[in-house]
Simulated scan of single mutants.
Amino acid sequence: MDAELRDLQRLFEEAQHAKASVRLSERNVVELVLKLQELGLLDADLLHTVSGKEYMTQEHLRAEIEAEIKRLRRISAVELAASLGVDLYHCERQVEQVIASNSDLMLVQGEIISSKYWDIVAEEVNDTLQEAGQVSIVELARHFSVGAELLTGILESQLGRLVRNLSVFHVKTGSFLLQ
């Protein structure tokens, strides 16, 4: 049994180091993959990238999306599709699934935003408040490129946790005040 296993290992190693006598062009490989899909020998969930030179599974696309969101904390679906080299349709489908399975993520006007991003925003607002004593929600919304209502809701949920010494949102002026 051991001798047989060693022979198989030796043959495998020889096969790995052997030079290929026939090379396929990229076009031939693409045609081959399409034919294998037609015959049902490859999963239909294989995605053709925008470059036309690569294929990606739905699972791999999802993992790439999750990694980008974790790295950037805020990214638009359009930017994701461009950076990953896939069609926007496929990217949006996977983004929907990622957001549905992760309560720390939200989709706001085509952008995926993580709760960690909001923590960073709250810390920046806290620093600004410590320096200025008052900050306009309109200025903050413009600075972070989000809606004033959304930002107000997020910051109110952070009161006392990341936005310290703050207990008043002045409705008339639309400002957070340092107390």
Rank of each mutant, 00 (worst) to 15 (best):
A20T: 03
Q134E: 15
L88P: 04
Y117Q: 00
R142P: 00
R23N: 07
F12N: 15
L140T: 13
H143R: 08
I99C: 14
E31C: 13
S114I: 01
L105M: 13
D127H: 11
L5T: 14
S101D: 06
S25F: 08
V171Y: 07
G174C: 11
A63C: 03
S76W: 08
E13W: 01
V163E: 02
L47D: 02
V50N: 05
G110N: 11
I113T: 06
A67H: 06
G85R: 02
L5A: 15
R71Y: 04
L107V: 05
K19G: 08
S157K: 07
E156P: 01
R27T: 11
E4P: 00
A3T: 12
K19N: 09
M56N: 00
S76Q: 10
S101K: 01
L150M: 11
Q158E: 15
N28A: 12
D43E: 05
S25H: 07
V78P: 01
D43S: 12
F169N: 00
Q37Y: 01
F144C: 07
L42N: 00
G85E: 02
L88V: 14
A148K: 12
S175K: 05
A20R: 07
L80N: 05
N165E: 14
V146Q: 08
I113L: 09
C91S: 10
H17A: 15
N126R: 02
A18F: 04
Y55P: 00
L151N: 05
S167H: 08
G147I: 03
N126Y: 10
L42D: 02
A132P: 00
G147F: 07
D43F: 01
E68V: 06
Y55F: 15
E59D: 14
V108D: 12
V29A: 09
L159F: 14
L41A: 12
Q97D: 10
N126W: 04
H48C: 05
V135M: 09
E59M: 03
V135P: 04
Q58A: 13
I137R: 07
E66M: 13
L105W: 13
V108G: 02
V95L: 08
E13S: 14
S83H: 03
R142I: 05
K116G: 04
R73S: 12
Q94N: 14
K70D: 14
L159D: 05
E66C: 14
I120S: 02
E96C: 11
E26V: 09
G174P: 02
Q158N: 11
V98W: 10
E68A: 11
H170P: 00
I69P: 04
D45F: 03
N126I: 04
R164E: 15
A44D: 11
E92T: 14
K35E: 14
L11T: 03
E54H: 13
E64I: 01
E38H: 06
D127Q: 07
T49W: 02
L36H: 06
G153Y: 01
Q37I: 15
E59P: 00
S101Q: 09
Y55M: 03
V30L: 13
Q179N: 12
S103C: 04
E149I: 08
T128P: 00
F12V: 11
Q130D: 05
S115K: 08
E123T: 13
R74H: 01
A63D: 08
M106C: 12
A122C: 03
A100V: 06
V125K: 03
E156N: 11
G153R: 07
Y89G: 12
